[in-house]
Design a protein around this nucleic acid. Sequence first.
DNA 1: TTGACGTATGCCTATACGGGAATACGATGC
DNA 2: GCATCGTATTCCCGTATAGGCATACGTCAA
Lengths: 113, 113
Amino acid sequence: MPRSSTTSDVFNAIAEERRRDILDALVSGEKAVGTLVDDLSMSQPQVSKHLRVLSEVGLVRCRADGRRRLYRLEPARLRPLNDWLAKYEQAWNARLDRVEDYLKELQEQGAQQ
Amino acid sequence: MPRSSTTSDVFNAIAEERRRDILDALVSGEKAVGTLVDDLSMSQPQVSKHLRVLSEVGLVRCRADGRRRLYRLEPARLRPLNDWLAKYEQAWNARLDRVEDYLKELQEQGAQQ
DNA sequence: TTGACGTATGCCTATACGGGAATACGATGC
DNA sequence: GCATCGTATTCCCGTATAGGCATACGTCAA
């Protein structure tokens, strides 16, 4: 069995960094495909394909404007991610309280790569 | 070019649902591999392999106890996810304020699948 | 109509995957 | 030492990808 499809859920869709870049670029508002191509220095087909994936999981929505297509963010779809992450906030904060431990994390993180 | 490695970052590591299941199971505390196998009804090699991925991105940490290996959560490593998501909280909340829109989201989400 | 523009799609390849089965490894108890 | 338990690793497979390139599609201007 291969990896789950990128369009199977939000988690798989945002696993690709390029797609996160696209979402980041859309935070400031609706943008045309060409604008994303320029801003992110990606090929046009590449952008279109990633937008398709994001669209299939509902993270973006499309609107026609002449021959351009304007894509906008659909932040509500990030909810599953937020909900899942919320479970760990408590455990997380408990660690953050111990500053020494946290600094050690960062050191190990740096040393590991 | 294939998809990024599952061990390339936290985003790719948690894309797999089984691995999220494992993390969820570890929220309550340190657990042995066998315990996870029973709790999650997964094969032992499967659990070990997923734990390896989680371990490589630092989401879990291992400790030996006799012939058992106890794995525990490393919540601090979820930070990149939290940071990335934070960018969207504002846009998100703006939508949540409009309850009608949010309900519509849920309806569309249900109708789509 | 014709051409140009903006975008989407199809084909291709190398690549990394998740799961199953078998097996190797390390620690324990006798 | 030896059998056994608990885990990790290896090999195999079918499969879905991301990117490059070429091209099809829809819309607008002249």
